[in-house]
Amino acid sequence: MNPENLLAALPERRGLDHLWRSLPDARLVGGCVRDLLCGAPVHDYDLATPEAPEQVMALLDATGIKVVPTGLAHGTVTAVIAGRPYEITTLRRDEETDGRHAVVRWTRDWAEDAARRDFTINAMSLDRNGQVHDYFGGVDDLAARRVRFVGEASRRIAEDALRILRFFRFDARYGGTVPDGEALAAITSDVSRLDALSAERVAGELLRILEGPRVLDVVARMMECGALSRILAAPHLAPRRLERLMATGAPPDAILRLGVLCDAPDTGERLKLSNGVRARLDAMRQPGFLTPDASDDDLRRALATTRLDWLMDGVWIAQADRLGRADPAWDALRARLAAIPHPVFPLSGRDVLEAGGVAGPGVGAVLRVVEAWWMSEGCRPGRVACLIHLENAMAARTV
């Protein structure tokens, strides 16, 4: 897109114009400028400004703009206009970095602020007149589908090792077929720096990589430079299995792709994922996945004991492992599975007691007998039929 037309391409200008009346020297920065240049949708507006954060808050407050001090230590406040947030950060320079955190000082030098950003395509800014300010060749790099670190790659990585993973994520989306050689060399040399990152930060970037474009290319490059084996259990990595999953047409689900790429039992713990995600990954490692020859009774039995979304995971994995390509029979299986109402065993312990049972462990035992029969019948018998079977089961034993 022609830089002169960038502001005209913004879907909503009133909020920005309001901000620029209060902060005329502020500029749009980072990802929103990059996405405007390549014609991609812009979802978030991030701005930078030479004024110190306290001055920013005073100027916005004076014009009636709601402002929230969301990160004063880092020079960041958030303006809210018509319910939409605009993150505004004071220009900064790094005084000290330890690979994870930085001590910053305010500056009024735009080039100095841009120099602390990760990649050239993320270091551009756009002022209220529609002029793009590009200190490191980001416009040319974006046009050439080239993702480069700002300045020396090894120095950028030393400042924050998460940039290793960010490189792969951005290269997948904005890069070409051949990645930047200096970047890959620096990553390969400094890949051990990933060990010092928190699991939460690593997981956040890894999942964004797995749900993004060109996943197989990215995974291959991450394996070649040793990055993937630093964050996942190397003996359990199966890129070929991930390739087979993607060949089936499975959805771009980061957790599904993660579970197929690495079936190590400690993946969820290693990445500090939520308990719900860990349970889902555990379910992916269980045997006995459904296949197209399953009857409706088989599907009901599966639904009675397992969540639908976990069963869908299992069907995609089984299709990948057994077939490794798209197939209408497997699509039909998923459609059948989604269409069947979730079966619920119609009895409870109260039914046993009302039928003359005695409170205690025997109640659960007789319920399990009836439920096993219900499951064997494909979860089809209703409450009346189950009550009759309960009476028969109780007659056969003392409850």
Results as ranks from 00 to 15, higher is better:
D44K: 07
Y45Q: 05
D46K: 06
D46L: 04
D46P: 02
D46E: 14
A48P: 02
A48M: 13
T49H: 06
T49F: 01
P50D: 10
P50T: 06
E51F: 14
E51C: 09
Q55L: 14
M57K: 08
L60R: 09
L60W: 01
D61K: 08
A62K: 14
G64H: 01
K66E: 15
V67F: 02
V67M: 08
T70V: 15
L72H: 09
L72W: 07
A73I: 03
H74I: 08
T76H: 02
T76P: 02
V77F: 03
A79N: 06
V80M: 00
I81N: 00
G83F: 07
G83K: 09
R84T: 13
Y86T: 06
T90V: 04
L91C: 01
L91K: 00
G99T: 10
H101E: 10
V103K: 14
V104G: 00
V104Y: 12
R105W: 01
W106N: 12
T107D: 12
D109W: 00
W110H: 11
W110M: 13
A111F: 03
A111V: 06
D113Y: 01
A114K: 11
R116L: 00
D118F: 12
F119T: 01
M124Y: 10
M124H: 02
S125Y: 06
L126V: 08
N129F: 09
V132C: 05
G137T: 10
G138T: 07
V139C: 11
D141A: 12
A143N: 11
R146V: 07
R146G: 00
R146Y: 06
V147Y: 10
V147H: 11
V150N: 09
S154E: 15
S154T: 13
R155V: 14
R156Q: 15
R156M: 14
I157D: 04
A158Y: 05
A158E: 13
E159D: 15
D160N: 15
